[in-house]
Design a protein around this nucleic acid. Structure first.
Lengths: 121, 121, 121, 121
DNA sequence: GTGGTCTAGACCACA
DNA sequence: GTGGTCTAGACCACT
């Protein structure tokens, strides 16, 4: 994983894990890697890994059993909620940005229709 | 201007200036405020203001004449280029994000059609 | 038994055993379960179970006969002493806490009079 | 400040600060000590101090301005809420504990009426 | 081995 | 100076 220097690593990893949840690559109730493993996986420090799980737990994404491990929340509805939240945020940022640039909804839709994996910088 | 605590202020200001260029509120060749003035305008630190011009100059958006000031680049095509670049970046980030979440082009277009200034957090 | 994640399990178990002594559900001289059995009973680790008896023995609540088992202390007065100690500790903690919050004895008594199994988080 | 080894230091400090808020020794909107000062004040590490403010901010007790400092929340109602929460927790723990020991409401009230700064272990 | 806390020390962005 | 993040390394409680 390549980290964006502008955004805290722990947030980038959380984003990545949330994405995996939404995509179904991580399922409700599943055991997550131990914080030590997570640290190795993402090439980060163990403290940072611990912080990731701590924040995710506070957000309700997972829960923890001392000495056993960290587990994905079992509430399936949460996965849908995460998906919607992430989509809304993307949509809002995009639309606000495009309107600031002077594009109207029609322009935007046709640009999307034409969109073919173009590469942005 | 309200700053987002998560993103470096200098980037938010650069974004704002670029937006003004694209919208025609800043025109090619125009003299930009001194970094001291910029600092006051945006309520930021002078170091931050200096950094903004440094970065914008490196990106080719403006140039500096010692003792006179900082000026917007005179190449009009650049304005179009900036607009396209910004739009492409927005589009690419958006599409990549949405596809990561599992949305198809059709879903995305209909969501945009429904979009009505919803507020994301 | 539901364990509170904030407090060490061995302390929670000791508390529980002391409670049983005070309530008369464990009587003076009675043989206590082996640490293996204790571990199963409370769904805890054997090391934790061993620690519990070690700590209780140090406090004088029980004694161990090698090869035979661990027994509740035979001194009946101790049971009364434990009860008083626990009550005093509870009372002291409570009163100190409430006074720190600015409550006077009168307020406190009326709050207790009103108390009806409210649930704290 | 003497720390209880059983409870995380950061929680003990948060508790202490909350107490000061409730007692009016810290008022709404007031600037809190910088994390470096807090570290010295409480003889803890700067990271621990930072964590304290981070958690307090997430709980809504204070807010932060980068480069400026951390400030107590300006919502006065929150102070009352904290006081009630802390009192309820104390009350609940106390009553549950006393009832487990076999005391009835009447006994408890008379013990409180007799209470005179006795010292518990 | 697993989560949780803590310290020490460093670097960054912002004022 | 102020908040924020990160690493490295250590120790604890629990399985």
């Amino acid at each position: 994983m390549n980290y964006n220097a502008e955004i805290p690593i722990y947030l980038q990893v959380i984003q990545d894990i949330k994405k995996k949840m939404v995509q179904g690559r991580i399922i409700p109730g599943e055991k997550l890697p131990s914080s030590r493993e997570l640290a190795i996986l993402y090439k980060i420090n163990q403290n940072t890994a611990a912080r990731i799980y701590r924040e995710m737990e506070m957000a309700g994404y997972c829960f923890t059993r001392r000495g056993i491990g960290t587990f994905v929340s079992e509430e399936k509805e949460m996965f849908e909620k995460i998906k919607e939240e992430m989509a809304n945020e993307l949509l809002h940022n995009f639309m606000t940005g495009m309107k600031d640039l002077g594009y109207q909804k029609g322009d935007i839709i046709s640009q999307i229709a034409d969109y073919k994996e173009e590469k942005a910088k």
